[in-house]
Amino acid sequence: MNIETFQDLIDWTRQLHGHLAECLKHCATQQEEARAKWLLEYLADHEATLEQTVAGFEKQADPKALHTWVYDYLSHAPIAPHQVCRSPYAEMSFDDICRTIFSLHDQVIELYRYLEGRAEIPETRELVRELLKLEEHESMRLAQQTNRARDM
């Protein structure tokens, strides 16, 4: 996907969470270890909810912010989850799944932090700040839930 505006960035984020939800759900059906299967199902639901939440940003955001060009994204290394779900999570352990998912979320958070510091107008800075808060909050929530599951 070619990201040129903040609207493209939001759409890319929404698609990222949606793709991840589908892949995790698919892999859960093939996972043999019970705890890892539960984790994949939980993560799939979580990512699907995030997809819906991020979609809401497209509807409520200031049009001025949405149509602002994202120049700095082009110099940032793109985040590429498994583009075609070939069941990588079905073969991973609970801890490997956690590491992979948290790494992906950390990359999204890092991208938003990077862009927040470079946003030139207040509307885009506020939009990126809100997206960043969402991603950080959801990442913390995931960490709490997976730590509880790990303790079981």
Rank of each mutant, 00 (worst) to 15 (best):
M1N: 11
M1K: 11
I3Q: 00
F6G: 01
D8P: 12
L9R: 03
I10Y: 03
R14T: 00
R14L: 07
L16Q: 09
H17L: 03
H19S: 15
L20Y: 01
E22S: 13
E22L: 12
C23M: 11
K25T: 05
H26L: 15
T29D: 08
T29F: 10
A36V: 10
K37V: 02
W38H: 14
L39A: 07
L40P: 06
L40K: 03
Y42D: 10
D45C: 09
H46P: 10
E47Q: 10
A48L: 07
A48N: 06
L50K: 04
Q52T: 14
Q52K: 15
G56F: 08
Q60F: 10
A61D: 00
K64N: 06
H67G: 09
H67V: 02
Y71D: 10
S75H: 06
S75W: 06
H76T: 02
A77H: 07
P78N: 00
P78D: 00
I79E: 00
I79H: 00
I79F: 01
A80G: 07
H82Q: 14
R86V: 13
S87L: 12
P88W: 05
Y89C: 02
A90K: 03
E91W: 13
S93H: 09
F94H: 11
I97V: 15
I97M: 14
C98E: 04
R99W: 11
T100A: 11
I101F: 14
I101T: 06
I101L: 12
I101D: 01
S103Y: 11
L104C: 02
Q107P: 00
Q107K: 14
V108K: 02
L111G: 01
Y112K: 01
R113V: 05
G117A: 04
A119H: 03
E120F: 10
E120A: 10
I121A: 08
E123L: 11
E123Q: 15
E123S: 15
E126V: 05
E126K: 12
V128A: 03
V128R: 04
L131A: 04
L132C: 08
E135S: 09
H137G: 13
H137K: 13
E138R: 14
E138A: 10
M140K: 15
A143G: 11
Q144H: 15
R148T: 09
A149C: 09
